[in-house]
Design a protein around this nucleic acid. Structure first.
Lengths: 173, 173
DNA sequence: GAAACAAGGTTGTTGCGACAACCAACACGA
DNA sequence: TCGTGTTGGTTGTCGCAACAACCTTGTTTC
């Protein structure tokens, strides 16, 4: 067996090491802040944000799972916990009795409004404020190029409004 | 309470969404390939690589934990599993009887040599090949800037040789 | 309209990471 | 040398994600 692997050159390796380190550290930072402030994982926060941004603040479980890169079992467990906390509500879809719809409650909207400032502050502190406007555009292009391989259907990035506007309860209510 | 949060503008939000999506998807891709090929998580692979690159193929548990961004309990569990598979060996440090040293075995070196080509291929396929040389340099700078905030002590990036050279068993043996 | 298949969700099991508690060994001052 | 505090690791418990199995409801085909 011949080894025709194209090993990484110095520049490739250096960039890759840094990217791996970044993907290793970033989730922990996001989880930590949100858990401390509002007892929410970043995944739960993202799911609530997706619901808040959706028409009627409601999504099908399957659609929400695709949007958050979750398997359906995972989302089902998370949804049960969020429902027990009164942050979302689940009810059968009227048009397809197999399906379940999830709606974020006012309490849920309130919680993400409470969480958002701290979250945005964290994002700025650890990422955005470290980058020049030029680098921000470069990051947008680079991440877009990579996501073209990782997420060709753009399930995760088919996003509605994020933080560009005011409180979610006004935005989505 | 006045809301003096600096919300994200359109460009910031777009770049951030893509970065989050990337950090969400990349670990899964890396784990999947390595688990399928050699029953190793990416974390385990990184730990073995760190040992292979270390002098005498040996590191203190604490040093290895810092290098891989693991807590000591986590590393302890992982090391036990790797030792049970014969991929590493642990023995008390002769100079400090509190400490434990971990050494990668020949079997361990063989396994990462077996895993490396597929791993590098995955890295190319999903990341590096999507980027121009210019973008590769930009990524290096951007990730470096962010890591300056996330990892100011450069624990994760104080890395020895990665993929720039031949098989680990030749490189480290 | 009945059988076969596909789609949508939930529940149970397993494995891993986080955290806390614990034990052993070193360091240092009195 | 004794006591106190610190460092290095391991073990136990809890919570969450992956996977598989299962159930229900649509959908298709004949």
């Amino acid at each position: 067996m011949t080894d025709d692997t194209r090993w990484l050159d110095t520049e490739e390796s250096a960039a890759w090491v840094r990217l791996v380190a970044l993907t290793e550290l970033l989730p922990g930072v996001l989880d930590q802040q949100l858990l401390q402030d509002v007892q929410l994982t970043h995944f739960e926060y993202a799911a609530l944000m997706a619901l808040a941004s959706a028409p009627d603040r409601t999504m099908r479980m399957t659609a929400l799972a695709a949007r958050t890169n979750a398997t359906l079992p995972r989302l089902s467990h998370v949804a049960r916990r969020l429902e027990e906390r009164g942050l979302i509500r689940r009810f059968p879809c009227p048009t397809d009795r197999r399906a379940t719809n999830a709606t974020i409650t006012d309490a849920g909207l309130g919680l993400i409004d409470e969480a958002a400032p701290g979250h945005v502050e964290t994002v700025r502190q650890y990422v955005l404020d470290a980058l020049s406007p030029e680098q921000l555009r470069q990051l947008y292009e680079i991440a877009g190029a990579v996501l073209g391989r990782l997420d060709p259907d753009e399930r995760l990035t088919a996003t509605a409004c994020q933080f560009s506007e005011g409180p979610a309860i006004a935005r989505a209510g």
